[in-house]
Amino acid sequence: MDQFLQNYGFLLVTLVQQSLLAYSLYFPLMAGQLSLASPGFYALGGYIAAIMATAEYFAPWRDALGWGIFPLGWLAAGIISGILALLVGIPALRLRGIYLALATIAFVEILRVICLNLAITGGAIGIFGIPQLFESRWSYIWTFGPLLLLILCFSYRLDRSRVGRAFKAIREDELAADAMGINPTRYKVLAFVIGAVLAGVVGAMSAPFLNTWNARQGTFDASIAYLAYVLIGGSRSMWGPLLGGIMLSALPEILRPLKDARLIINGLVLVFASIYLPQGIVGAVGSIRNFTTQTLGIGRSEK
């Protein structure tokens, strides 16, 4: 077991971490909004945690708080990401359609260029020598794991709450939702902010996990990857992002021997999944089950 965790501990934690990032895209999608901003907030959160853990200015804080600086970093990352998300989200979400996606692409690029140029973010090299919360990579499951459980509980409750129903109403038909008295902009912004806070916190947790932080953490490529997790897992079920995140981030490791062909296959998976699995894997499993229950009368579950 110990040997197994030595070998695969890092990978296992990475799967959890990537799934969490998938959820940061899932919440806006619940309200029908495509946000590609997650890598931006992820990078931002990581920088905040990395700066708090290494910068001279925060040294007295670190002495006073000890390991408490880590949760404080998560908190700071969450709050700052939330505020920034409000600033980005409000102008973009007044508009319907593709504008949020475009605004978030712009946001990620602007943030990347800024981080590459500031002294405090360490320029191109970034921030390194980040103090560690745990010795082994595997132990980081104790930060990402509880967060994932929290997010799963949250999604479960959200699904059944008034807010969750409002999200779905907006996704199905924004105009109708508006007519029913739901304020679409408010809920769209809320969904976007939830995703941003989550991405920021995951970033803050990831900085010590990866030992170093730099501007390459937040790129357009990462946006695509997270989107793929959600859509291939299933954007309409709370289990979709988890399944998609785990499967797709394990895929490159499984395909390791294929080297260059790896990313080609990734791309093909995206094309095929969007054409043949429009509801994602969870959706497809659901419709197969419906098919068998309804037509063949087998596997009927108690309702």
Binding site: Q6, N7, F10, L11, T14, R137, L210, N211, R216
Partner: peptide, 12 residues
């Protein structure tokens, strides 16, 4: 690969 996670994985 070109990223940090890939390097950690390979080293592990």
């Amino acid at each position: 690969g070109g990223d940090e996670a890939g390097a950690i994985n390979a080293f592990q």
